[in-house]
Design a protein around this nucleic acid. Structure first.
Lengths: 335, 335
DNA sequence: TTTGCATGTGCAAACGTGTGCACAAATTAA
DNA sequence: TTAATTTGTGCACACGTTTGCACATGCAAA
C-alpha cells in the first residue's frame, strides 16, 4: 500500500536535510529542540522505522546474534535459548534462531545465512552429524565470535560452555549400586559428541571405582534417531545376560528405549531400570519412567554462554575459554 | 583477525573493477569466461561472502521471512515451524524465528525487529496476551504481508490458516457420550483467542445436539499458566456435582489439571476422564493421561501457511483469505 | 570594529553491492 | 577500406543511513 517512508521522506516534508533528520532521531543535542520535536512527531505519524540494513552498512554492527540449535522441540534447547535471550535482552541485542535438525548441511546453510547477515556473534549447539568445522572457521575469519553451547566440537579450539556430566552421573551409578544393581549398561549418543565421550569415560571410571564389571556388549551408541535407539535397545535386551539397569543418553533416548522394553512385555523398574539425563518436566508424568535423572541446567548453560559472548564482544576475553556447569542427580519417587 | 573481504578487495587484487566482480559472481554472461573463473576462484580462496545488508539495500528484498511464535518448547509450535520451513526452503527463503513467550511487549519487539530487518513476510502465532494489533498494521503499511497461523486475531482482517476444532471435538463429545458420560466440563483457553471461542461454541452446540445439559459452572478459562490452570481445575473439582469428564484446551493444560486430580487422590479415567487437544507425542507415555485427543496437524498448518505466503508474495492472492485444517479425534488405548 | 564562541543546519562522502550506459577492442559484413 | 556488430569491461550513480566538516546566524567579549 503506502510507500516505505525513509529519512528523506521526512526531510523533504519538513524542508530540512536528511542529515538533520538523522541527528534529530538520534537525539543529537546539536539539533534545536523545536526541530527535534517536529521530526520525531512526524516520524511517529508516518510510522517511520529505520532500515537496519542501511544502518548496519554504516555502523558495521547489527546488535543481533544468531543461535543455531539441533532442534526446537527438545525442551533442553528451548530452555538454553531462554537463558541466552535473557542475557541478550539486557544487552540490547536481538536473537535470531535457526534449527539444523541435526543435519550438517542445514547447519552450514544457517551459519552461512548468519554470516551474510553479519550478526555480531554466534551461539551454536552442534548438530549430531557435524564432523567438519569449515563453516565455523569462515565465521571467525570474518571476526564473528562463536560460543559453543553444550554440544561442543572435538579438536576445534573455541569458546565453549559445557555441562559436566561427571558429578551427576557418578552419583547416579552409586545410587544404582546402592539399590543392589550390578549389571549396568550405557545407551550412549554418537561418539563424535564430546558429551557422549564424557558419559562414556565417566561411566567406565565410575564402574571401575565401584568395582563393577563392564563389557563392550553393554555399551551402545545411537545416532539419536528413534529407529536407531530402538534397534540398539533391542541388541541390549537380546544379550544372554541383559543388564539390570540402563543409562540413557537423555530422556528422549530413554523414552524410545522404554518403548522397546514395553513391547517385550518387560516390567519397568523391576526387570529393568532406567537412569537418564536432562530432566524434562514431563518425565514425572511417565508411567514407570527413569528412576533418576542427571539434571544439567540448560537455562544456566544458555545464560553463561550469553555472558561469555558479552565478554568476548567487549574485548575482555582474549583467550579461548571453557565454562563448566556441573550436573546434579535428581532422584524420582517410583514406589 | 583477517579483515572482511568485499567485492572491492577482490577487484583490486585482480586489477578489475568492482562492477566486473559483481557481475562475474552473478554469472553474468557478458563477463568473459576467463575473468569469471579467476574471480570465482579468488572469491572462494578468500572466503568471500556477500553482505546481505548491501544487497538488500539495492534489491529491496531479503529472501527472509520472520516467524513469531508464543514459545518454542511446545511441540505444537515447533512442528508448525517445521512445516513452514519446508515450504520456505524450496522457495529459497530463510526463516528466522523469535518467541514472544506469550507476552505482547516481546511480540511487539520481535515484530519491530523484523520490520527494521525488512523481512519479505511474517508468519505469526499470536501471544496469549496480545490484544492490540498496531504493530501488525505497521508491518502492512510497509507492504510486508502477514500470515496468522492458528492463533489468529479477532476482528482484524488478515490472511490466516486456522485449525478447525469442530470436526474433532464433536467426535470427542460423541465418544464420551457413548462411554456413558453426561456431565462434561470445558477447561478452556483465554477468551480472546479465536481457538478458545471455537472450542466453546462447538462444545455448546455439541452438548446441545447430544441432549446434554451445560452449566456455566462447568465452563472455565485459564490464561494457560500452570498456576491459573491448576486454580481453575480446583474450582471445577470443588463443585457440588463435579463433572465426569473434562475437555482441556490442550495437552499442557491437561497435564497441569491432571496434577490437581492426582493431588486430590482421585483416580484418572475412573473418577474423572480427560479429553484434550494437540496430540503430543509424549502423551502416550503418561500414566492414565487423556483418553483421547483432538489432533490438529500443526505441521500441515505451517505448511499451508508457507504456501499461502508464497502465493501472496507472488501476487496471486489479492484478497484476505482463510485456510482451514480440519481436526480429527485420536482415541487412545487406556485399558 | 573585530574576534570568539555558541547554536543550528547542510554538504558530501562513505558503507558494499547492483546496474544502465558508454566505450574500447576485436570481429565480421559491406 | 569503412561501417556495423559482438564481446568484455569500467564509470557513475543508486539504495538509506551516519558523520566529519563547513558554514551561516546570533550574541557577547575584546
Amino acid at each position: 500500500m503506502a510507500e516505505t517512508v525513509t529519512i528523506k521522506t521526512i526531510a523533504s516534508l519538513l524542508g530540512v536535510s536528511p542529515s538533520t533528520v538523522s541527528r534529530a532521531l538520534q537525539g543529537n543535542p546539536r539539533i534545536g529542540l523545536r526541530t527535534r520535536e517536529r521530526v520525531s512527531e512526524l516520524a511517529r505519524n508516518l510510522n517511520y522505522v529505520s532500515n537496519s540494513a542501511a544502518q548496519m552498512l554504516k555502523k558495521n554492527t547489527t546488535f543481533t546474534v544468531g543461535i543455531v540449535v539441533p532442534n526446537l522441540h527438545e525442551e533442553y534447547f528451548s530452555l538454553m535459548i531462554e537463558g541466552i535471550e535473557d542475557v541478550l535482552e539486557q544487552m540490547g541485542f536481538q536473537a535470531i534462531i535457526s534449527q539444523s535438525r541435526d543435519n550438517m548441511e542445514k547447519e552450514k546453510k544457517a551459519v552461512e545465512h548468519f554470516l551474510r547477515a553479519r550478526v555480531d556473534g554466534l551461539l551454536v549447539s552442534l548438530s549430531a552429524t557435524t564432523n567438519e568445522y569449515d563453516h565455523f572457521q569462515k565465521m571467525e575469519r570474518y571476526g564473528i565470535p562463536i560460543i559453543f553451547c553444550d554440544r561442543t566440537p572435538k579438536g576445534f579450539p573455541s569458546f565453549r560452555v559445557r555441562s559436566v556430566v561427571e558429578t551427576g552421573l557418578k552419583s547416579g551409578l552409586e545410587f544404582l549400586h546402592r539399590k543392589g544393581m550390578r549389571r549396568i549398561a550405557l545407551l550412549n549418543g554418537p561418539s563424535y559428541l564430546l558429551s557422549a565421550d564424557e558419559r562414556l569415560n565417566t561411566y567406565l571410571q565410575g564402574m571401575y571405582e565401584l568395582g563393577l564389571e563392564t563389557s563392550p556388549a553393554y555399551i551402545r551408541s545411537t545416532n539419536l534417531s528413534k529407529e536407531d535407539t530402538m534397534a540398539k535397545m533391542e541388541e541390549i535386551l537380546g544379550l544372554e545376560t541383559p543388564p539390570e539397569a540402563v543409562i540413557a543418553f537423555n530422556d528422549y533416548v530413554a523414552l524410545d528405549a522404554i518403548k522397546v522394553v514395553r513391547g517385550k512385555g518387560l516390567v519397568l523398574n523391576k526387570d529393568i531400570t532406567f537412569l537418564s539425563f536432562a530432566n524434562l518436566p514431563f518425565t514425572d508424568s511417565i508411567e514407570n519412567g527413569p528412576i533418576a535423572s542427571v539434571e544439567q541446567f540448560p537455562y544456566k548453560i544458555g545464560f553463561k554462554a550469553g555472558q561469555l559472548l558479552e565478554e568476548v564482544l567487549s574485548g575482555d576475553a582474549p583467550e579461548y575459554r571453557e565454562e563448566l556447569v556441573y550436573s546434579v542427580l535428581k532422584i524420582r519417587d517410583r514406589t
